[in-house]
Design a binder for these strands. Structure first.
Lengths: 210, 210
DNA sequence: GCGGCGATTGACCGACGGGTCAAGGTGCTG
DNA sequence: CAGCACCTTGACCCGTCGGTCAATCGCCGC
């Protein structure tokens, strides 16, 4: 049975990762509910009991998967953003990077959308979005201070709009409702966001990707 | 057991509606998976077996609920749109109406979001969004013809952005991440959409709600 | 070679809940 | 009244699956 106070050996860590990997593959292929714990174990070539040596429940494994992907997304954003650029441009760069990242991990994000949040890790997903929104909001405030964005508009609302746009187009693209190359989609999102944020055509001369 | 070829009496139709209503209440309160068929029957004060007199499966009832709400949403949009207005304004009116409608039925839409699409009526939800998107796209094309919107931009993409915005802000509002009155949110969405759609500040003088 | 601990096994448990069924109304029509 | 179609009941069936457990293995330090 699972306990927190346990010292994993190298082999242990490897096995755990193996289970994580197999789970992700199966989840993305069939969905959370349709994937049995025993399926994961079979895929990893171990007995079912071993699952509960590494994870207290099936949900816990799911949560680890989500957390790990979130971390990678944030890293991808950080890499894509030029810290010396103006805040508006940084927002667009972040948005574009997110679209690209989500496209690169389309199957995982598609799976995420289809996980019923009924009780399962309720809030875990929202929490991630909230953090992201606050980040963008901070940059919106900066941009407002520089009068790149209308200072009368609510920063949190605008930030929410940005991440909503990213989420939506990523979804639309991966579900095949948009069959443009991912670069076009990313650029379109950059344009849409910039256009929605700036009060009038004050963006002349500033390009998202120079 | 359920069969299609059955003639419902008045009492029958009433009973069926009663089950539908109880189901909706319970689904919105606890979620789809957490609501047992027997709970619905208890709430309606009938025996479990009767459920299968009116519905072949639990999923079927769910599908009916979704279809019915979709119909009402479309009616609400149709009512809010001034057919004599220009297409850009009509789009904004439709968007605002949708936000208001979703807020008025917040608990139902919140529930919808949390239904895992794992197999269940997969596509039923997307189908609804697609229809809506095509409607908006048609109006975008109109607006492009009138040069209210940049004709070089992909109409389907823009339309997708509009409904994405509506969906996102409705979600953000009902989940408490935006604690503005619904009117403010609706108006903000109208502004955001218009801003994102028009190429430059060519919207001067046109107000969504005069 | 012994004790201890991590790692591994797979049979087993137990509840849960969707769906079935045979029986029994009730009310209309012929 | 007979026959038929709609309606209602609740005990029962039964597959499914997360989670448990006692037993065993293998490695390492003493």
């Amino acid at each position: 049975m699972y306990t927190t106070d346990r010292q994993l050996t190298d082999q242990g860590r490897e096995r755990k990762q193996q289970l994580l990997d197999c789970a992700q593959t199966l989840f993305t292929a069939r969905g959370y509910g349709a994937t049995r714990v025993v399926d994961i174990c079979d895929a990893a070539g171990v007995a079912k009991g071993l699952f509960y040596w590494y994870f207290p429940t099936k949900e816990t494994l799911f949560a680890e998967l989500v957390r790990s992907m979130r971390l990678r997304l944030r890293r991808a954003q950080a890499e894509a953003i030029d810290p010396t650029a103006d805040p508006l441009t940084r927002i667009c760069q972040g948005a574009e990077a997110s679209v690209r990242f989500m496209a690169a991990h389309a199957s995982f994000f598609a799976f995420l959308e289809n996980v019923g949040v009924e009780g399962i890790v309720a809030g875990l997903l929202n929490e991630g979005r909230d953090v992201h929104t606050r980040d963008v909001a901070a940059q919106v405030v900066e941009a407002q201070a520089l009068h790149l964005i209308d200072p009368d508009e609510d920063a949190a609302l605008l930030a929410s709009g940005v991440i909503g746009t990213v989420t939506h187009f990523s979804h639309a693209h991966r579900s095949g409702r948009i069959d443009l190359p991912i670069d076009s989609v990313a650029l379109f999102v950059g344009r849409w966001v910039r256009q929605a944020l700036v009060p009038e055509s004050s963006s002349r001369g500033i390009l998202t990707t120079p």
